[in-house]
Computed example of a mutant assay.
Amino acid sequence: MSRSNKVVVPDCKAALNQMKYEIAAELGLFASHGVPSGAGADTEFAGELGSVGGGTRIQWSEVTSRDVGSIGGSITQRLVAQAEKVLNGYS
């Protein structure tokens, strides 16, 4: 099965990764394993991730599809909101 996702702006990967961890923290999830050591966001938010919303420490492989979908949906909402701000002249 081939992926239809094409990397358009490779430099955005780190920012999207950071956003993923921020949102996971807000949802009370923690993903300490399987995180690339050079990702930046994994260490920056490590203290928050285990404590936000009474979350427990789990591996990304243990995150439910529903939670992963919530993270992806929240990323999309934030990106759209940021784009709307830029297009409306607010930065």
Results as ranks from 00 to 15, higher is better:
residue 5 N to A: 14
residue 60 W to C: 12
residue 28 G to I: 00
residue 41 A to L: 05
residue 84 E to I: 06
residue 12 C to T: 10
residue 8 V to P: 00
residue 25 A to W: 00
residue 7 V to W: 05
residue 88 N to M: 13
residue 13 K to V: 11
residue 38 G to W: 15
residue 25 A to V: 00
residue 12 C to G: 08
residue 61 S to P: 02
residue 79 L to D: 03
residue 14 A to S: 14
residue 77 Q to H: 14
residue 36 P to H: 08
residue 1 M to F: 13
residue 14 A to V: 06
residue 1 M to P: 04
residue 11 D to G: 12
residue 75 I to S: 02
residue 33 H to Q: 07
residue 70 S to T: 05
residue 62 E to V: 02
residue 10 P to H: 09
residue 76 T to C: 10
residue 22 E to G: 03
residue 30 F to W: 02
residue 76 T to V: 10
residue 33 H to Y: 09
residue 24 A to I: 01
residue 74 S to R: 12
residue 2 S to T: 15
residue 58 I to W: 02
residue 2 S to I: 14
residue 5 N to S: 12
residue 67 D to S: 06
residue 50 G to Q: 08
residue 8 V to K: 13
residue 38 G to D: 14
residue 16 L to G: 04
residue 4 S to L: 10
residue 16 L to C: 04
residue 75 I to H: 03
residue 21 Y to H: 08
residue 16 L to N: 03
residue 11 D to A: 15
residue 76 T to D: 09
residue 6 K to T: 07
residue 20 K to T: 11
residue 60 W to T: 08
residue 9 V to C: 06
residue 59 Q to F: 10
residue 1 M to K: 05
residue 5 N to H: 15
residue 8 V to L: 13
residue 25 A to Q: 01
residue 58 I to A: 04
residue 87 L to I: 10
residue 54 G to K: 02
residue 51 S to I: 14
residue 16 L to E: 11
residue 21 Y to D: 02
residue 76 T to E: 05
residue 76 T to Y: 10
residue 9 V to G: 08
residue 43 T to C: 12
residue 3 R to P: 02
residue 84 E to A: 07
residue 10 P to E: 11
residue 54 G to I: 02
residue 21 Y to S: 07
residue 15 A to N: 11
residue 68 V to R: 00
residue 12 C to E: 05
residue 72 G to V: 07
residue 37 S to K: 05
residue 91 S to I: 11
residue 61 S to V: 02
residue 55 G to I: 01
residue 49 L to T: 09
residue 12 C to I: 06
residue 82 Q to G: 08
residue 17 N to D: 15
residue 90 Y to G: 04
residue 30 F to S: 03
residue 87 L to C: 05
residue 17 N to M: 10
residue 38 G to V: 08
residue 24 A to S: 07
residue 18 Q to M: 09
residue 78 R to E: 14
residue 19 M to G: 04
residue 7 V to A: 13
residue 20 K to P: 00
residue 64 T to S: 14
residue 66 R to I: 13
residue 68 V to C: 00
